[in-house]
Simulated scan of single mutants.
Amino acid sequence: MAGSNAVLAAILLADVLAFALAIAAEQSRPSASLETDARNEWTYCVYRPDAATWLGGAALVLLLVGQAVTAAASRCFCCGAALRPSGTRGCALMLFLSSWLTFIIAEACLLAGLVQSAYHTGYRTVIFEDPPDCETVRRGTFGAGAAFALVTCVLTGTYYRCFSKARVSYQRPEAAIDMSRYS
């Protein structure tokens, strides 16, 4: 029983879009500038509107959707149909574990970037003190998420192919009484 090409296409599309959105989030990281108030008493951080939060969130959700489709299509590897004992089954198991590991790392990177991108400090200091630290997303946070999303895409697609090759539908023998003359 071969795997569905539509399922594989859906998995790869979701993961590739997650990769592209994570790259876009890395490119549109927010920046901050130091401003002073009208009376020159306070300095504060002004953040420009950023799309990184929305792009990173969409990448996070799409990566999750791709992994959910894979888990549903393969019945999460352990709850599904019997698999033919072969090297393909062993390969599918290794790819299953590897894809989940890279998925968790990618989601953690994207989530860290989201939290940093969404958090804008509101520090104010008196003008003659040290200026406030205008925190922004560290360079490479969304990029690391994008890299692991791409690795997850490759591992998940390969896992689904190996799983599909190893899947076997076993026929259970019917309980019956043999009615032939020569039993």
Rank of each mutant, 00 (worst) to 15 (best):
M1K: 12
N5S: 12
A6K: 10
A6I: 15
A9E: 08
A10G: 12
I11H: 04
I11F: 02
D15P: 08
V16G: 03
L17C: 14
A18R: 03
A18V: 01
A18Y: 03
L21T: 04
L21A: 02
A22M: 01
I23A: 09
I23L: 13
A24Y: 02
E26K: 03
Q27L: 14
R29T: 02
P30V: 04
S31K: 10
S31W: 09
A32P: 13
E35M: 06
R39T: 14
R39M: 09
N40S: 11
N40L: 11
W42N: 12
T43G: 00
T43V: 04
C45G: 02
Y47W: 05
D50A: 07
A51T: 11
A51E: 14
A52F: 00
A52H: 06
L55C: 04
G56M: 05
A59Y: 01
A59D: 07
V61K: 03
V61E: 00
L64M: 07
V65G: 10
G66P: 08
Q67T: 10
V69M: 05
T70K: 04
A72I: 13
A73R: 10
S74E: 00
R75T: 08
C76N: 13
R84C: 04
A92L: 07
L93Y: 07
L95K: 03
F96G: 01
L97R: 02
S98E: 09
L101S: 07
L101M: 01
T102V: 08
I104W: 06
I105C: 00
A108S: 07
C109P: 08
C109L: 06
L110F: 00
A118Q: 13
Y119T: 15
T125V: 11
V126P: 11
V126W: 07
I127S: 06
I127T: 09
F128V: 09
P131T: 08
D133H: 14
C134M: 10
E135S: 15
T136A: 14
R138K: 15
T141R: 00
F142D: 12
G143K: 06
G143W: 01
A144M: 03
A149V: 02
A149N: 04
L150I: 03
T152I: 00
T152E: 08
C153F: 08
C153T: 11
T156G: 01
T156S: 05
T156Y: 03
G157D: 01
Y160D: 06
Y160R: 01
Y160Q: 05
R161P: 04
F163N: 10
S164Y: 00
A166C: 03
A166N: 06
R167V: 13
R167T: 14
R167Q: 15
S169Q: 14
Y170M: 12
Y170G: 10
E174S: 14
A176C: 11
D178C: 02
R181C: 02
R181K: 01
R181Q: 06
S183K: 14
S183R: 13
